[in-house]
């Protein structure tokens, strides 16, 4: 009898976890629609939005610039190691540009953005909730979703695609520095082969679409975790951790799904 009760408890815990997960997913979806419905003031008063773009985008600029440059330089060095065995080092421009524009730009910029700006958003909103600032706004008839959440959400959606493009550009420049200036590949072949191989619509636009999708996902996760945080010091810290972990997983999973749909069966 005792044994059966334990098994039942075990199944019950699975059921509770599943139900909680579905509830949170539904809550997040409804929260998204609430943000969209409440985002009128954000665009009517661009000052709110600009302030948040400054915090989310401009302050993430340095880390994105530096990592883009270094990733491009490492790609060039590692690519050279492989390409030199086939005597095809001139294809390095293609290698660097395609890997950055298609994959690394959106994904790494998204991961950096989630840990640099997304965690900050969660902590800020979570602390506002903990110190009952959001409740106070509600009492003063100010909608906290419109005043606090929506500007942060849209700032993230605007900032991440721009950061991803900057990341790719710096990465390609880093590859150029290492490949052409350091190793001594022909500069014309580096750019020329890149321009022949990289397609505007298939490669560049799909990379931009990816970064926009990641921007929506990361921003929503960040503001939702903050808004949903347990209003204690511990709860805010747990919410911040969840933001980074969930965003990273969401970016990588979405990246797989998008890649399957965008690049199945080669370039065309």
């Amino acid at each position: 009898m005792n044994f059966l009760a334990k098994i039942a408890d075990w199944f019950r815990s699975i059921g509770t976890a599943t139900r909680n997960g579905i509830t949170r997913l539904g809550f997040a979806t409804r929260f998204f629609w609430a943000i969209v419905r409440a985002s009128g003031p954000t665009f009517m008063r661009p000052r709110l939005l600009i302030r948040e773009i400054y915090h989310a985008g401009v302050l993430s600029l340095v880390i994105v610039l530096m990592s883009g440059l270094f990733i491009g330089m490492v790609l060039a060095l590692q690519g050279y190691e492989t390409l030199v065995r086939f005597g095809a080092t001139e294809a390095m421009g293609v290698l660097v540009a395609l890997s950055l524009v298609r994959e690394l730009g959106p994904v790494v910029a998204g991961l950096l953005f989630a840990s640099r700006a997304g965690s900050a958003m969660t902590a800020e909103i979570g602390l506002m909730k903990t110190t009952e600032q959001l409740a106070a706004m509600d009492v003063m008839a100010i909608d906290p979703v419109a005043r606090v959440v929506a500007p942060r959400f849209w700032a993230g959606v605007i900032s991440l695609p721009l950061l991803a493009a900057i990341f790719s550009m710096l990465g390609i420049y880093g590859g150029f520095l290492v490949g052409v200036k350091l190793i001594g590949i022909d500069g014309g072949a580096f750019w020329g082969q890149m321009q022949v191989a990289v397609d505007w619509r298939n490669d560049v636009m799909n990379g931009v679409i990816k970064s926009v999708v990641f921007a929506f996902a990361v921003s929503l996760i960040a503001v939702f975790e903050g808004y949903d945080a347990t209003p204690t010091a511990e709860g805010v810290s747990a919410a911040t951790t969840r933001t980074v972990v969930t965003s990273a997983l969401a970016i990588l999973a979405l990246d797989f799904v998008l890649t399957v749909f965008m690049f199945r069966g080669g370039v065309n």
């Binding site: 985008g57 540009a97 524009v101 695609p161 721009l162 950061l163 493009a165 900057i166 790719s168 550009m169 390609i172 750019w191 890149m194 321009q195 990289v198 397609d199 505007w200 490669d203 560049v204 990379g207 931009v208």
Partner: peptide, 13 residues
Amino acid sequence: GLGALFFLALKVG
């Protein structure tokens, strides 16, 4: 950011 997009479109793409 917009400059980087233009760079990707024109110089790379």
